[in-house]
Amino acid sequence: MIRGIRGATTVSSDCEDLVIDAAEELLQKMIDTNGIEATNVASVFISVTSDIHSTFPSKALRRFPDWKFVPVMCLQEIPVINSLPLCIRVMLHINTSKPQHLLKHVYLNNATILRPDLDVV
Protein backbone atom coordinates (compact mmCIF):
# COMPACT_ATOMS: atom_id res chain seq x y z
CA MET A 1 0.00 0.00 0.00
CA ILE A 2 1.19 3.53 -0.71
CA ARG A 3 0.66 5.95 2.18
CA GLY A 4 1.46 9.61 2.62
CA ILE A 5 3.49 11.19 5.38
CA ARG A 6 3.21 14.93 5.79
CA GLY A 7 5.68 17.41 7.11
CA ALA A 8 6.20 21.16 7.19
CA THR A 9 8.64 23.73 8.43
CA THR A 10 9.34 27.42 8.06
CA VAL A 11 12.37 29.59 7.39
CA SER A 12 13.12 33.05 8.75
CA SER A 13 13.83 34.45 5.28
CA ASP A 14 14.03 33.40 1.65
CA CYS A 15 17.73 32.56 1.51
CA GLU A 16 18.96 29.58 -0.52
CA ASP A 17 21.04 28.10 2.30
CA LEU A 18 18.22 28.50 4.84
CA VAL A 19 15.67 26.88 2.53
CA ILE A 20 17.86 23.89 1.70
CA ASP A 21 18.99 23.41 5.31
CA ALA A 22 15.40 23.60 6.59
CA ALA A 23 14.21 21.11 3.97
CA GLU A 24 17.06 18.77 4.88
CA GLU A 25 16.24 19.00 8.59
CA LEU A 26 12.56 18.28 7.92
CA LEU A 27 13.24 15.37 5.57
CA GLN A 28 15.77 13.83 7.96
CA LYS A 29 13.31 14.05 10.85
CA MET A 30 10.55 12.49 8.73
CA ILE A 31 12.88 9.67 7.64
CA ASP A 32 14.22 8.97 11.12
CA THR A 33 10.87 9.20 12.89
CA ASN A 34 9.20 6.78 10.49
CA GLY A 35 12.16 4.50 9.70
CA ILE A 36 11.91 5.22 5.98
CA GLU A 37 14.28 3.65 3.46
CA ALA A 38 14.67 5.31 0.06
CA THR A 39 13.84 2.04 -1.73
CA ASN A 40 10.33 2.22 -0.21
CA VAL A 41 9.62 5.77 -1.38
CA ALA A 42 7.36 6.10 -4.42
CA SER A 43 7.73 9.89 -4.76
CA VAL A 44 8.15 13.15 -2.88
CA PHE A 45 6.25 16.39 -3.37
CA ILE A 46 7.75 19.52 -1.83
CA SER A 47 5.76 22.73 -1.91
CA VAL A 48 6.65 26.25 -0.86
CA THR A 49 4.65 29.38 -0.25
CA SER A 50 4.95 32.11 -2.88
CA ASP A 51 7.41 34.08 -0.75
CA ILE A 52 10.06 31.37 -1.25
CA HIS A 53 11.68 31.56 -4.65
CA SER A 54 15.46 31.56 -4.03
CA THR A 55 15.93 27.84 -4.73
CA PHE A 56 14.34 24.43 -5.07
CA PRO A 57 14.08 22.84 -1.61
CA SER A 58 14.38 19.47 -3.35
CA LYS A 59 18.13 20.16 -3.54
CA ALA A 60 18.20 18.92 0.05
CA LEU A 61 17.54 15.38 -1.19
CA ARG A 62 20.88 15.47 -3.02
CA ARG A 63 22.47 15.36 0.44
CA PHE A 64 20.97 11.89 0.96
CA PRO A 65 23.01 9.48 -1.21
CA ASP A 66 20.45 6.64 -1.11
CA TRP A 67 17.73 8.97 -2.40
CA LYS A 68 19.39 9.56 -5.78
CA PHE A 69 16.67 7.76 -7.76
CA VAL A 70 13.61 8.89 -5.79
CA PRO A 71 11.35 11.06 -7.97
CA VAL A 72 10.77 14.49 -6.46
CA MET A 73 8.73 17.47 -7.58
CA CYS A 74 8.63 21.03 -6.26
CA LEU A 75 5.37 22.96 -6.33
CA GLN A 76 4.06 26.32 -5.23
CA GLU A 77 1.26 26.44 -2.67
CA ILE A 78 -1.90 28.30 -3.55
CA PRO A 79 -1.60 31.85 -2.17
CA VAL A 80 -4.27 31.77 0.53
CA ILE A 81 -4.71 35.09 2.35
CA ASN A 82 -3.22 35.06 5.87
CA SER A 83 -1.62 31.65 5.39
CA LEU A 84 1.62 30.77 7.15
CA PRO A 85 4.47 32.60 5.39
CA LEU A 86 7.86 31.20 4.40
CA CYS A 87 6.58 27.64 4.68
CA ILE A 88 7.98 24.46 3.14
CA ARG A 89 5.68 21.43 3.03
CA VAL A 90 6.61 17.84 2.19
CA MET A 91 4.49 14.87 1.20
CA LEU A 92 6.35 11.55 1.15
CA HIS A 93 4.56 8.72 -0.65
CA ILE A 94 5.87 5.47 0.79
CA ASN A 95 5.22 1.79 0.23
CA THR A 96 4.40 0.36 3.62
CA SER A 97 2.32 -2.21 5.41
CA LYS A 98 1.92 0.11 8.42
CA PRO A 99 -1.58 1.41 9.08
CA GLN A 100 -2.03 5.16 8.61
CA HIS A 101 -2.42 5.84 12.34
CA LEU A 102 1.12 4.54 13.02
CA LEU A 103 2.78 7.01 10.65
CA LYS A 104 4.15 10.14 12.28
CA HIS A 105 3.77 13.50 10.59
CA VAL A 106 6.46 16.07 11.35
CA TYR A 107 5.96 19.79 11.83
CA LEU A 108 8.88 22.02 12.80
CA ASN A 109 9.39 25.68 13.67
CA ASN A 110 6.35 27.90 13.03
CA ALA A 111 4.66 25.10 11.08
CA THR A 112 3.67 23.42 14.34
CA ILE A 113 0.50 25.58 14.26
CA LEU A 114 -0.74 23.96 11.04
CA ARG A 115 -2.13 20.73 12.49
CA PRO A 116 -2.88 21.05 16.20
CA ASP A 117 -5.41 18.22 15.78
CA LEU A 118 -2.73 15.63 15.00
CA ASP A 119 -0.28 13.91 17.31
CA VAL A 120 2.78 15.11 15.42
CA VAL A 121 6.49 15.10 16.03
Rank of each mutant, 00 (worst) to 15 (best):
I81K: 15
Y107S: 04
S43P: 00
P71H: 07
Q28A: 01
A22T: 10
G35R: 09
A60I: 10
S47M: 06
D66W: 02
I20P: 08
V80G: 01
K59Y: 14
D66P: 00
G35Y: 07
L86K: 14
R89E: 12
H101P: 03
L118G: 02
L114E: 13
C87M: 15
H105E: 09
P85G: 06
S13L: 07
A42C: 04
E37L: 10
S58Q: 13
R63Q: 12
P99D: 15
R63I: 02
I81C: 06
D66L: 11
K98W: 05
V120R: 05
L86G: 03
L75V: 11
P116C: 10
A60T: 06
A60N: 09
N82C: 11
L84C: 05
T55R: 00
S47T: 15
P79K: 05
F56L: 13
E24N: 09
V44P: 02
K68P: 00
V80K: 12
W67S: 04
E25T: 07
S12V: 06
L114T: 06
K104Y: 01
Y107D: 01
R115T: 09
N109F: 04
D119T: 10
L61Q: 03
I78A: 15
V72K: 13
S54W: 04
F69K: 14
R115Q: 13
L114M: 12
H53D: 11
P79H: 06
T33C: 03
D51L: 07
C74K: 09
S83R: 11
S12M: 05
L103D: 13
R115D: 05
R62P: 00
V80W: 09
P71C: 10
E77H: 14
I20T: 13
K104G: 00
T96H: 09
K29L: 01
S13H: 06
C15S: 12
S83W: 05
S83I: 00
C87Y: 06
S58V: 13
T96P: 02
S13A: 13
L118E: 14
R62A: 10
V80A: 11
V41A: 01
K68S: 10
L86M: 11
I36C: 05
V90M: 15
D117M: 06
A23I: 03
Q100S: 09
A38T: 03
S50A: 06
V44W: 13
L86Q: 04
D17T: 05
I46V: 15
F45P: 00
V90F: 14
D117G: 14
S83A: 11
L114K: 12
M73R: 15
S54P: 02
R89W: 01
P65Y: 07
T49G: 03
E25K: 11
K68V: 05
V41D: 10
W67K: 04
N109D: 15
L114D: 07
V19T: 03
P116E: 10
A38H: 03
D17S: 13
V19P: 01
I31A: 07
F45Y: 12
P71K: 13
L102H: 15
I46S: 02
I52K: 04
I52L: 13
A38Y: 00
I88Q: 03
L18V: 01
V90E: 09
V90G: 08
A60Y: 09
M91G: 06
A60R: 10
F45E: 14
H93I: 09
N95C: 05
R63N: 08
K68C: 06
D51F: 04
